Simulated assay, not measured.
Amino acid sequence: MHFRCQKKDLVEGISTVQKAILGKSPMAVLEGIYIETGANEIIMRGSDIDLSIETLVSSSILEDGRIVIDSKLFGDIIRKLPDATVEIATMENNTILISCENSEFNLLYLNAEEFPMLPEIGNREKISIREDVFRNLIKATSFAVAQDESRPILMGVLFEVKNKVLNMVALDGFRLALRSEYLESNEDLSVVIPGKTLNEVSKILGDKNELLYISFNENHILFEVQNTKVVSRLLSGSFIKYESIIPTDYKLQFKVKRAHLAQSIERASLMAKEGSSKLIKLQIENDRAVITSNSQFGKVKEEVSVHMEGDAIEIAFNANYLLDTLKVMEEEEILLEMTSSVSPAIIKNTVVDNCIYMVLPVRLTR
């Protein structure tokens, strides 16, 4: 194998495929980057079996071949080279020579025969969606993915298409995030994508109008954007019937400026007790929300103007759960619905009906 390419293109390709490489693996070959020569490019691939990423890097091919090279060492070397043309050629004794201006490195490489190929996805209709739109969908839901491995299905995001609407749903037992987008597709499907996969896809996507193409089979999902493919295993099992757990009735409804509420909660949470609970209390009455928190260090009180309809309520939350939700919402004014101090709170937009967030309260002790 022998090729030349620009350092910046090679660095971009390495950074892309390294997102699928865990580091230490029982299979030494999975700690490496697969490189194969194509027509006028090299094919680079990283994989941990569950997730594989493949990208094309424009190159001048002098001799065909394929190798696997240690991901971390190869990446570190290429990033430190001068910003110039990099030349890579296989040599004797399973080594490659990396040359760039006055720098030369000799590295051992592994046999590429053992490296996993990308799974075949099949010929089902591809779903297309804009890069920036899908990136926003991931941002708006993936924060609510469960981190607890005791319920593996909740470590993924439901990807549900029906009646030309894409719903993406995540929940972890304490909160739920639902975001919807119109989709020009005749597919009706429901699969669960690992949260880790979506986070890596998000890093590859840009804020562009370019189309992302998505296709499936029973076990895998394929994302294709420009010169890059991401293939992931789907999670097996049935996702929770999320529609049945979202309350439709409420006794209190109020509108509030999202930024004002978020800033007040953030300040109040500074005084919340150390640890994961970050408990804050909200007293909503007389068109205002009074937010309080206290600990051994002192106490804090914040007031935010609201426009309310219904009964006054006192309720407590984990401040982080509220803040995570408010940070991914986009409208200036939002709507909150509550029933009691022990019932979930619903948070929605006031203009565009494309999201529902649900947060469970913390039970207050009297």
Rank of each mutant, 00 (worst) to 15 (best):
R135H: 00
N354T: 04
K299L: 09
G32A: 08
G298V: 11
R179I: 12
G23T: 05
I121D: 02
Y321R: 15
Y321I: 09
V342M: 10
V161M: 04
D132F: 05
E41S: 15
L198K: 09
V29I: 15
E101T: 12
R135L: 12
L107F: 11
S15Y: 07
S185R: 02
I315V: 14
S52M: 08
N217Y: 03
L211Q: 14
F115I: 10
M338V: 12
Y182G: 10
K164G: 06
N163C: 01
T350R: 05
E337P: 08
K7D: 04
A272F: 08
L171R: 04
K80S: 15
L51N: 02
I98N: 10
K196L: 10
S340N: 10
V352G: 01
C355P: 11
S185D: 01
Q263N: 15
V256H: 02
S277Y: 09
M91I: 13
I265D: 06
V362R: 03
K273F: 06
L22S: 14
I78C: 04
S293G: 11
G23W: 00
L222P: 01
P82V: 04
A272E: 03
G13N: 12
N294G: 14
V306K: 00
I138T: 01
E184N: 12
N136T: 09
N354G: 01
G38N: 06
M271Q: 09
M155T: 15
S341I: 00
L364W: 03
N93S: 13
D148K: 09
N294T: 13
I334N: 06
R175M: 06
L183S: 00
Q6A: 11
G237E: 03
V133M: 09
V133N: 08
N102V: 02
A177I: 00
K257N: 14
L336V: 13
S190W: 00
A272R: 09
G237A: 02
I138G: 03
V306N: 04
R179H: 13
I204R: 06
I88V: 15
G275N: 08
K7L: 08
T85M: 07
R79S: 15
N219L: 13
I49D: 04
S238M: 07
K8L: 11
K139L: 05
E187N: 07
R45H: 01
E12L: 14
E243W: 01
D311M: 05
S276C: 05
N111F: 09
L235I: 13
T55L: 05
K327S: 12
K8I: 14
S142K: 02
Y242E: 00
M44I: 02
A259W: 07
I315T: 08
F297T: 10
G156Y: 00
K162A: 00
I280H: 07
L30H: 08
A259M: 13
S236T: 15
V11A: 07
L171A: 03
L279K: 14
M168Q: 11
L212C: 01
A289M: 11
